[in-house]
Design a protein around this nucleic acid. Structure first.
Lengths: 348, 348
DNA sequence: CGAATTCTTGTAATCGATTACATCTACTGT
DNA sequence: ACAGTAGATGTAATCGATTACAAGAATTCG
């Protein structure tokens, strides 16, 4: 209560201070913390009480320098604009922080200087592991040498032609085929596809699945119904794609959008022109983000197990980071997707 | 092209290696990097070519240890489940990474061990600054001493009774009043409020604004129309609140939800019971998240300048972190909100 | 031409924790 | 009672970069 009980001005307290107060050497303090049973009972008590009294917290930089490990992982995303990533990041943070790791986020796309920044972070030993989400490993010259330094894993998207990364994804092709097969089973014959971002593996795979389902059913794909150039996995792209529908020579009865957000934007765009879903046209998306379920109409889509994939990828990376020195063989984990049927498809 | 051009096995290359190769001391290498014009032209060249040849990147831990700065900031969120945060995080990452800072994300709520984890991160000098979003400063005993160590700023929510943090927010009370005033102007007299999460400053402020608008207009607030206990700023809470509407003795003609996600969930819940917005009841939200615009009906809401607030908060924190030593007076920045009129309100 | 000044570079201490090795004490077993 | 072993602790080197200080070389100026 009295004036002198106010906390003293925060001067950085080091292991030296604790050692002095406890009347032992710094080595003993360090041991008392890291290997408590290598230290005599009484000494341990003395050290811990000195720690409490001083409010000592080990300096992370000093520790990292010696241990050559930072207990930090870097998660590289193409951007957070899309709600697709939030459960993934949630899961990652949960697993990593529970093991005492910090999660650094970065958006690698677009800016060259950004890429360099993150490449440096990795090469400077600032992180113990890296998770690259959706295929955007900086193809920086500097970066190429990296996988030897720290483990790097890929999520949701493989990089064709390399096998140096562990991969955690789904079979986009198969899942898309299943989705389109569902439309066909509901009686649709004229099905359009809103293609995702150009240059992404997922986009290509989803298109292949779309074709597969057509081929299986003996249906011809009308190339005029593969709508490219919409842009990203976002609303705006979907909204823009509505124009393709409206101006189609012969309108499709169903549309497979490469992502939920595209599907939602598309439906909204249609609505502005008086076209109703699913009465006039059926729509399916991909991902099963939170909004798919709550939109009106609720969206039929293909669920990607985002949280689970996040947990598993994190656990795997953790294992690799622990295995300092030897390189474990790469993991390629593919989890199944699930068809979620809601209200946006009408049986013909 | 030939075999021996393959990159050599990555052994950590240190400043020593560069110095040796360039035929200078480590001090000179360090200077060549940090203060290029304090070094002779020829030497500088030699150093840089040695750096290129070895692929040297300075070790971050060593640097941090000496410099007592890590170039990392911690962003604490209550969770990422809500899309409200994505543009904020986007803006923060943009500003910080452009200045060479890394962004660590953490979810402080719920778990005690999590809090300790992040408190340690801060006290261990692992970050140079902290941004706490929506009022969740760990009230940990350990934490209380922290603000003296590194600058901490609050976003979107003040902590009553303290003035040790800088704050970046909006006037929730005023904005809510404006929103409700709009409903009143549109002819509504019986207006319900879906209260946000208990214990959050924002929730309380928004309720006050709701009352203010009523008082101004000489309207009596019917306490049965303040629906508490919905839960979080999310869909489920809104969906749950639909039950309050349906079971109301005398139904309101308009509903002010404490957040967009709540409003969306509410509308969806209503729809399942055949109640239509805005024909049967008008709805307004708060925040103006991406989905508000694209939902059907598009939501009338109060826009919070999330991106701008993020940029400004980041810039301010950056300034504080640079000003090592002296403590700058705290900033309290309040940005205006904007009423966004869409389709979810009907004029009575 | 010699003194004063400016440039350039090197030597070595430092940041704070960890840990190999050495030392000392206290047991154990014969 | 004494060698041998286990247990507890201290000493000092180490991780990799930065930087105060010193010293030597080059330049300027009266």
């Amino acid at each position: 209560m009295s004036e002198d009980e106010i906390a003293p001005v925060a001067r950085t307290v080091t292991i030296q201070d604790v050692a002095r107060l406890a009347g032992v050497s710094t080595a003993t303090v360090s041991r008392a913390i890291a290997l408590p049973d290598r230290v005599a009972e009484a000494t341990r008590e003395a050290v811990f009480s000195a720690i409490r009294e001083t409010g000592y917290t080990p300096n992370a930089a000093a520790r990292s320098l010696r241990a050559k490990a930072t207990r930090m992982v870097l998660v590289l995303l193409p951007g957070l604009g899309n709600s697709f990533f939030t459960p993934v990041l949630d899961a990652l943070e949960e697993v990593f922080s529970s093991q005492g790791y910090g999660v650094l986020v970065g958006y690698a796309r677009q800016s060259r200087s950004r890429e360099t920044h993150y490449a440096r972070l990795i090469r400077g030993g600032q992180v113990d592991g890296v998770l690259v989400i959706t295929g955007n490993v900086p193809r920086d010259e500097e970066f190429v040498a990296v996988p030897e330094t720290v483990p790097i894993s890929l999520m949701f998207s493989d990089i064709p032609g390399t096998d140096q990364f562990s991969v955690f994804d789904v079979d986009n092709r198969l899942a898309s085929a299943t989705l389109v097969r569902h439309l066909i089973a509901e009686g649709h014959r004229r099905i359009a596809h809103i293609f995702g971002p150009e240059g992404s593996t997922e986009s290509e795979e989803r298109l292949l699945g779309y074709r597969d389902a057509h081929a299986e059913a003996g249906l011809q794909v009308d190339d005029a119904l593969v709508w490219r150039g919409a842009g990203n996995f976002d609303f705006v792209s979907g909204d823009r794609a509505a124009a393709f529908y409206l101006s189609a020579a012969e309108r499709p009865t169903a549309v497979f959008a490469a992502a939920d957000e595209i599907a939602l934007g598309f439906m909204r765009g249609l609505k502005n022109h008086g076209v109703s879903v699913p009465d006039d046209v059926s729509v399916v998306g991909f991902d099963d983000t939170e909004y798919a379920e709550h939109y009106d109409p609720a969206l039929t889509t293909m669920r990607q197990p985002r949280t689970e994939l996040g947990r598993l990828a994190a656990a795997d990376l953790l294992r690799r980071m622990m295995a300092k020195g030897e390189t474990l063989p790469r993991t390629h984990l593919r989890l199944p997707c699930e068809l979620i049927i809601r209200e946006s498809v009408r049986r013909l």
